[in-house]
Design a protein around this nucleic acid. Structure first.
Lengths: 240, 240
DNA sequence: CTCTATTTGTCCGTATGTATT
DNA sequence: TAATACATACGGACAAATAGA
């Protein structure tokens, strides 16, 4: 049931990662790929376009598609990737402690910060992420309870996204994110006791996450230890 | 000479920004757009795909293409956008002081940091960006001199990208970026005299920029005042 | 420098499937 | 159920860039 062009995309993606096509080498021409997969050139082109967007190849008019240097570490943090997925891909020694899980209603006050209209029924969740035993990230989430129905501490300690996509059958689609450096609060110091006294800010990644039908359902504030924070991104220059 | 689908993309992009299609409204169906522009549906789809990638619309199978809320401020920092372009789009009161412009050769030492092989002939450039009169960003650049030929302080004070693309006819294509929080150096304090004593880190955005033929030609380190830094991004969840 | 073969870029028309209303 | 709208796929045509003879 998965689309043909997605299969082709994945085939080349894994081949590139396994260095079957090493950096700087060229993929076969679109025509050759099309005959190999016995599909049309249009289908191949769709697959290659996605590989290009994601930074795996660079297409060159009249020359071919060249494989780019890729550090695996380069991709997973960018985009919309959950902590559990990160943990898997990067093979981190990581675990999660649920500090708070409560039900509440949004007020006019936190409407501005969370983006939810007043009186929306929400889950409020606070978790600390430990990497190699060190408290490295404080995650604070608000979920719209009309979308997320049965959130438990067990789910929150594992993968909420896995639960939402596989059990609740939701399609998580896009997010607006912002990265800033925010002053450290007393609560931050309590949750990150090893944080050196001289540090005065945490790196904060704020996200507003939406479903495929544009429903806004999650607001997340992730506060990172500044000495442990790294955000990697592949970006392309906009065409005129 | 610009492609038909790019024209259509731009038409809708400006219409959306000017709220001719307000947030949450739907664009005309692909078939209608195709007949309006008297082109094929395939061409329309390409334009709409780009609008979706860039966060302007959300396509919904069987329903239509819905316009998303867009804060103009949301886009320009993400991607590969020059300071001068940012200044224009955001209408900032901003100016640039060139602190250093010199020619040098890379050593084995700075190969690791800059990514250029030893003995590459480079320009080395340091600039301070002032926003509303306040020193807010320190930019340090290395350009490969076999790509960038005549860099002057005048060009460096204006738009280097404008010069490279329009005068030197280069096609800037993609970059790997990383964001970290780095300790403040003595040089940083000299260039940013108003930086409060209690701050101990700057937000550093490091970029390696490539041309369309994958030539690596620019390494940039941008160090931002933590209280002035904000990085905004629109991101989509990866398909399985 | 010119010509030619190869390769990617754009666009069209058509057909069929799937999701929404 | 039927109409509408988006998703996928195919095949063909021509343009434009590149590389090599």
């Amino acid at each position: 049931m998965t689309a043909r062009y997605i299969e082709i995309y994945q085939q080349f993606k894994t081949d590139i990662i396994q260095e079957k096509y090493p950096a700087n080498s060229f993929l076969p021409s679109e025509a050759k790929i099309a005959s190999q997969f016995s599909c049309s050139r249009d289908t191949v082109r769709k697959a290659l376009s996605h590989l290009e967007e994601d930074g795996f190849i660079q297409k060159q008019h009249g020359r071919g598609s060249q494989v780019l240097q890729h550090s695996l570490i380069n991709f997973p943090i960018s985009g919309l990737t959950s902590f559990q997925e990160l943990k898997q891909v990067q093979r981190l020694d990581a675990n999660t402690k649920v500090v708070l899980l409560e039900r509440l209603q949004s007020t006019a006050m936190n409407r501005q910060t969370t983006g939810f209209p007043a009186k929306t029924k929400l889950y409020h969740l606070i978790r600390v992420r430990y990497i190699n035993g060190l408290a490295s990230v404080i995650d604070e989430d608000y979920f719209d309870r009309s979308v997320v129905h049965n959130l438990t501490a067990e789910i929150a300690a594992g993968s909420i996204y896995e639960y939402l996509e596989n059990t609740e059958k939701l399609t998580i689609s896009y997010a607006e994110k912002s990265v800033t450096a925010e002053l450290i609060s007393k609560q931050d110091r309590l949750l990150m006791p090893d944080l050196p006294e001289r540090e005065n800010r945490l790196i904060q990644v704020e996200s507003r996450v939406h479903l495929a039908d544009t429903t806004y359902f999650q607001h997340t504030i992730s506060r990172h230890r500044p000495d442990k924070f790294q955000f990697n991104e592949f970006s392309r220059r906009q065409k005129k």
